Simulated scan of single mutants.
Amino acid sequence: MLSVYNYMASGVLLTGIVAMLFSMGGITSPAAQVFIHGGILKWVIMLSPLAIVFAMSFGQARMQTSTLQMLYWAFAVLMGLSLSTIFLVYSGTSIAQAFFATAAGFAGLSLYGYTTKKDLSAMGTFLIMGLVGLIVAMLINLFVQSSTLNLVISFAGVLIFAGLTAYDTQKIKSMYAHVAGTDMMGKVVIMGALNLYLDFINMFLFLLRLMGNGRN
């Protein structure tokens, strides 16, 4: 589990560094140029992380551990490029507050998932259903542009990914116990780190939408 957390934390750190560097310069930054005038490059950057997640999820059995590692780091870099826009939209103080609030919440929830004796699998099924509903609501709101629905989506997103943090931690702990000492151990570490990374980043983004203030 320590290896999982190390991979996850390193991925988040790499994403943050890439995002900060890509957005340096504000409106004249590479991020602004790409996402305002980038054309197809903008969509490549935005969709590539999703493609990598699908490739890792469905191809992990056929891939070498080294290949999964390479894809994980590539994913973290591409996520940094994609998330660089938050530094153009939100103030640095808002980003820092949302990040540290997420880090504190994530630590507590992951610790609960790791130590609890309660089986969280039923909660996980409910949360996955909630995640599907959340995605549908976000797609609908792209067209209706409702500020009230946006607030509900943000609040629900924080709750869903908070719950998934505890659920995924327990699932990773269980999987790791089954593969300890086998060749699958390295793959489980990387895929576990990817799951927790996604929980952390999504909880952070929804929390930022709730409490973030725009740049002056």
Rank of each mutant, 00 (worst) to 15 (best):
A193M: 10
M203L: 15
L196Q: 10
L2E: 03
G163S: 03
R62L: 15
A162Y: 05
G186N: 11
L41Y: 00
F143L: 13
V152E: 05
A61S: 09
G26N: 07
G38F: 08
V34K: 01
G133R: 09
K117P: 08
F54A: 14
A137W: 02
N150E: 13
G38M: 02
Y176L: 14
F204C: 11
I135Q: 10
S94N: 00
F200K: 06
V152L: 13
L13S: 09
M138V: 15
L21Y: 04
S57A: 12
I17F: 02
Y114P: 01
G133Q: 10
I160Q: 00
S91C: 05
V18L: 12
D119S: 05
V12K: 01
Q33M: 11
M129G: 12
I190Y: 05
Y176N: 05
Q33L: 13
Q97S: 12
I45K: 01
M175Q: 10
I153R: 01
M123C: 04
L109K: 00
L198N: 04
F87E: 08
R209W: 13
A31N: 08
M123D: 08
V189D: 09
G163L: 10
D168W: 06
I135K: 10
G133N: 11
L134C: 13
L159C: 09
K118Y: 14
A162W: 00
G39D: 07
T148H: 02
K118L: 14
G214V: 13
K187A: 12
M79S: 07
L151T: 15
I140Y: 07
L196E: 08
F106C: 00
D199R: 03
Y197S: 07
F206V: 14
G59T: 14
G38C: 04
I201P: 01
A32E: 06
N6F: 12
T93I: 15
F100M: 08
S154F: 00
Y167P: 03
K117C: 12
T28Y: 07
A19P: 03
P30D: 08
S94M: 00
A177G: 06
F206P: 08
A162C: 10
G133E: 10
K171H: 14
G192R: 08
I17C: 00
A177L: 11
L208D: 07
Y176Q: 03
F100Y: 15
V4K: 02
S91I: 05
A19G: 03
F206R: 05
F87D: 04
H178R: 01
A19R: 02
N150H: 12
L71C: 00
G124Q: 06
G212F: 11
G113F: 09
M184A: 14
A193K: 07
D119C: 08
M191W: 04
A61E: 10
S84L: 12
G105H: 05
A166F: 09
A177I: 09
M20V: 15
I135M: 13
L2N: 01
T65A: 15
F58T: 11
M8V: 12
G59V: 14
V158Q: 02
V152S: 01
I128T: 15
M1A: 07
S121W: 08
S29W: 02
F99A: 11
G38D: 00
V132A: 15
G157D: 08
A156D: 01
L81I: 11
V34R: 04
A162K: 00
T67E: 15
S29V: 12
S66F: 12
L50E: 06
L78N: 02
S110A: 14
M79Y: 02
I40Y: 10
A76H: 05
A101D: 06
L81T: 11
